[in-house]
């Protein structure tokens, strides 16, 4: 008999590791990414690929330097054995939340910032305070004017060559709506919103059907809880209705246009930067919804990524001050009543 392994219980473990969960998230993102390429052409594919590659390479280079791998060369390969796909998720997500007509170096810059500054400098996987992809987008958004002009899906055709000057850009349906242009919600319009045809927006956010497919996959694989994105989306929509003086036509435009679906399904639900308890999560998603609808009304621009960034910073506080009662817990007042009887 060979040497027995001794460790603390339990001696059974679920087959679902961090790596497996991250691969699930990538799979869930794929439909929206593919639809982004269909709508915005192969240049969008280039942006997504650059974003993912530079995210992974940044993590690799950072780890090589941090581990002083030249002293123990086996680490050059060991990194890939322990690779957990979190940077692939970050890179893909970042590529999907920038417009398709930006210069090629923008996704590279954004990914390097997201991984090196936001994730690795704070301690790597699980230690980042804010969502790296969202922080990367906000970094690009406030640094480059190109981030504010959105191309129209289907204007390119799949094999269009990148030519920034020839692209028709416009305000997104959301900003148009927020600017006060009355939106007559028709059936054709809703299907355009759902499929993303003729819509302006970022690569991954225009096709809502693909995002919903990803949502279904994540729920079925139990990566996220079904109510988390729904809560965010519903609160945003309903609060927008309230702000418009109970005009229920405001619900669909504020839910189906802009980056709300992508943000609610893939960015706000990020494990590291969302609260850990159920009660904390309810507070977090309701607050996200309220602030999103309120700021949209106040500023007239799309604010989902900024709001997620803001709430990410509040998460440690929520975790600290939202208590979780143990099984069988009796409130002190009630306990006293019981004993006095």
């Amino acid at each position: 008999m060979k040497q027995l392994v001794v460790s603390a219980p339990p001696h059974l473990k679920t087959p679902r590791t961090t790596k497996r969960i991250m691969i699930d998230v990538v799979i869930a993102l794929l439909p929206a990414a593919i639809m982004g390429v269909v709508l915005f052409g192969l240049y969008a594919l280039l942006i997504l690929a650059l974003s993912v590659l530079s995210a992974v390479l940044t993590e690799y280079v950072y780890e090589i330097v941090a581990h002083k791998a030249w002293k123990s060369p086996s680490y050059f390969l060991d990194f890939w054995k322990g690779f957990d796909f979190t940077s692939v998720v970050t890179g893909l997500l970042l590529g999907m939340i920038i417009p398709a007509n930006v210069p090629w170096y923008l996704p590279v810059l954004g990914a390097v910032f997201a991984i090196a500054v936001v994730k690795m400098l704070f301690g790597g996987t699980g230690k980042n305070v804010v969502n790296p992809a969202v922080a990367g987008r906000v970094f690009l958004f406030i640094s480059f004017a190109a981030m504010t002009a959105y191309p129209v899906g289907k204007d390119f055709g799949l094999f269009a060559v990148y030519a920034p000057d020839n692209i028709v850009t416009g305000a997104t349906p959301l900003t148009e709506y927020l600017a006060g242009n009355t939106v007559q919600v028709t059936k054709g319009m809703i299907s355009n919103w759902l499929f993303g045809f003729g819509m302006t927006g970022c690569i991954g956010e225009t096709c809502k059907i693909a995002l919903l497919l990803g949502y279904l996959y994540l729920v079925i694989r139990k990566v996220i809880k079904f109510w988390q994105p729904l809560l965010y989306i519903a609160v945003t929509g309903l609060f927008a209705v309230c702000l418009e003086g109970f005009d229920f036509t405001a619900f669909l435009p504020s839910v189906l246009t802009g980056g709300l679906l992508l943000g609610a399904i893939f960015m706000a639900t990020d494990y590291v930067t969302s609260p850990k308890s159920n009660l904390g999560n309810i507070i977090y998603f309701v607050a996200l919804g309220l602030i999103t609808a309120g700021l949209r009304k106040a500023t007239g621009i799309e604010v989902v990524s900024f709001v997620i960034l803001l709430m990410n910073i509040v998460v440690p506080l929520i975790d600290k001050f939202v208590p979780r009662r143990p099984f069988g817990y009796v409130r002190e007042k009630k306990a006293k009543e019981v004993t006095s009887k």
């Binding site: 969960i21 790597g124 494990y271 590291v272 930067t273």
Partner: peptide, 8 residues
């Protein structure tokens, strides 16, 4: 073990 990702 790998890093805690705070999945809850």
């Amino acid at each position: 073990p790998t890093a805690c990702i705070g999945c809850g």
